[in-house]
């Protein structure tokens, strides 16, 4: 079946025969094999419970935080197996943005952006920190909006601004890959549009994997798309091709709104 899946040359990420089960035999992800394209947005779609979030979390090994989870198969980042790296190193290379904006409420905006370094106990000079904060906030287009309140806590920011702050927090590490778990599902349409524009800009320098419930979002901004169903990777293709001419009847059913 693999030869029908999208082939990618020089992939940033290779998922190889990955299976993840809760307990003994409840598979959330089953035998998934796929290569992820560099400097592109790859969308993962599927009805809820299809395993797309678990797959995403397996890529930075966040799924290991919860007990009773078994992982088989492998994932390679630039050819190196992520299961042989320490999670602390891995998660600097693979950043993550969550469903609901989650800036640290006890930290200022400045501290939030630099939080990755602080949490990791990195001793940076003030000038180095300033530079990272400024460039990260510039990248997400937030700097002008918060320039005067960098030392305030971020709770006065709008949902969209908070989410961009969270993206800036991830960018501070200059990761290779950014994982996004339905990053706009809690936002209003205007904020969503801003974030989508931002993602398209970001892919110039980063590889983005985007789990989304929102088919039109996947259609608008992703280059490639995966469709998952009941833990299996059903179809993986260029987004345009999948939306115009899905190969599998289950993909077609989902895209046409028959289930989901």
């Amino acid at each position: 079946m693999n030869e029908q899946m999208l082939q990618v040359s020089n992939p940033i990420l290779s998922i190889i025969d990955l299976s993840i089960s809760y307990g003994e035999d409840k598979y959330a992800v089953k035998d998934v094999t796929a290569d992820v394209k560099r400097n592109a947005i790859t969308a993962i779609m599927g009805p809820s419970g299809c395993g797309k979030s678990t797959l995403l979390r397996a890529i930075n090994r966040m799924h290991e935080l919860y007990p009773n989870i078994h992982t088989k198969g492998g994932i390679k980042l630039n050819g190196d197996s992520i299961y042989e790296m320490s999670t602390t190193k891995l998660r600097r290379k693979i950043g993550m943005v969550f469903q609901r904006p989650n800036p640290f409420p006890t930290m200022s905006i400045y501290e939030n952006v630099i939080a990755g370094y602080d949490l990791n106990g990195s001793k940076l000079k003030k000038s180095e920190k300033d530079e990272i904060v400024e460039s990260s906030l510039t990248d997400v287009g937030l700097l002008d909006e918060v320039r005067d309140s960098l030392n305030k806590k971020g709770n006065f920011l709008s949902g969209g601004q908070q989410q961009r702050l969270c993206i800036a927090r991830t960018l501070a590490f200059k990761p290779d890959v950014i994982l996004m778990d339905e990053p706009t599902s809690a936002l209003d349409p205007l904020s969503t549009a801003k974030i989508e524009d931002l993602l398209v800009e970001l892919k110039e320098h980063y590889s983005i994997i985007l789990v989304t419930h929102n088919m039109s979002q996947a259609a608008r901004i992703s280059d490639n798309a995966m469709f998952m169903y009941l833990g299996e990777l059903v179809e993986y293709d260029k987004t345009k091709k999948m939306f115009t001419n899905p190969r599998d009847s289950r993909t077609e059913g989902y895209l046409t709104g028959k289930f989901g």
């Binding site: 320490s86 190193k89 180095e128 990272i132 460039s135 990248d139 200059k174 320098h205």
Partner: peptide
């Protein structure tokens, strides 16, 4: 936007773990 290498930090991950 430019992707530049991490600023010269020491790798402290073994000690942290």
């Amino acid at each position: 936007m430019e992707t530049k290498a991490l600023i010269g930090e020491k790798d402290n991950s073994n000690w942290r773990e």
